[in-house]
């Protein structure tokens, strides 16, 4: 990949447009990235894109940002990574700054607050839908440990108010240790 201004601009434009018009979170943006960079531009192989998706999903942080860092770096090194990060974060940065500015003025409007109140119930429905989908997948897997982790983490956070960072670190460590033990004994607890 030639590191010239035209290619940097193309990388910026592609990530910017993907970020500006993708609703629906990380998994959607990954499939659109594949379409753009593998099928349309031919800059990456399908294999490379799969690796990028795997790493982006298994690291902390927004999936779209993670994927764009990897993609930019793979194509055009550190500057490429910087360019694609900028392309990815500028659209939400601009949009949300504008919304944040008008939010103060509009929040007290009777109509706006009624609509937001209605939407609050709607967003609860969206959240519970996600929880049901993810939770039933874990229960259907019929492994005991993940179910215990799920119930335990809920009790620890919602009822006992344990610090959220400790819960995440504890469960990550538990998963890592179990996988090491599983590998030695040939079992599948996690």
């Amino acid at each position: 990949m030639k590191k010239n201004a035209a290619n940097y601009f193309k990388l910026f434009k592609s990530t910017f447009l993907l970020s500006a018009f993708t609703f629906g979170g990380g998994f959607v943006i990954i499939s659109l990235m594949k379409k753009k960079f593998v099928d349309t531009l031919g800059w990456l192989t399908e294999e490379e894109m799969l690796d990028i998706a795997a790493i982006a999903q298994s690291t902390p942080g927004a999936i779209a940002v993670n994927a764009s860092i990897l993609l930019g770096w793979r194509l055009m090194g550190p500057v490429g990574a910087l360019v694609s990060i900028l392309g990815t974060i500028i659209p939400p940065l601009v949009l949300l700054s504008l919304i944040s500015l008008v939010y103060e003025a509009f929040r007290d409007n009777v109509v706006v607050s009624a609509v937001l109140k209605g939407m609050m119930a709607g967003v609860c429905a969206v959240i519970f839908d996600v929880v049901i989908t993810m939770g039933s997948k874990i229960i259907k897997n019929k492994k005991i440990l993940p179910i215990i982790i799920m119930v335990g983490a809920f009790a620890a956070y919602f009822i006992l108010k344990v610090n959220i960072g400790y819960i995440i670190l504890f469960c990550a460590t538990l998963g890592a240790l179990t996988s090491v033990y599983d590998k030695k004994t040939g079992k599948e607890h996690i």
């Binding site: 993810m134 993940p146 179910i147 809920f154 469960c171």
Partner: peptide, 26 residues
């Protein structure tokens, strides 16, 4: 393998945490 283990431990945790946040909004 270890990364898979970490994710295996985190997936159920994340469900529990989303449920907690969802309950407080509900």
């Amino acid at each position: 393998a270890v990364i898979k283990g970490v994710l295996g431990g985190l997936r159920p945790t994340v469900v529990a945490l989303i449920l907690s946040a969802g309950l407080s909004i509900l």
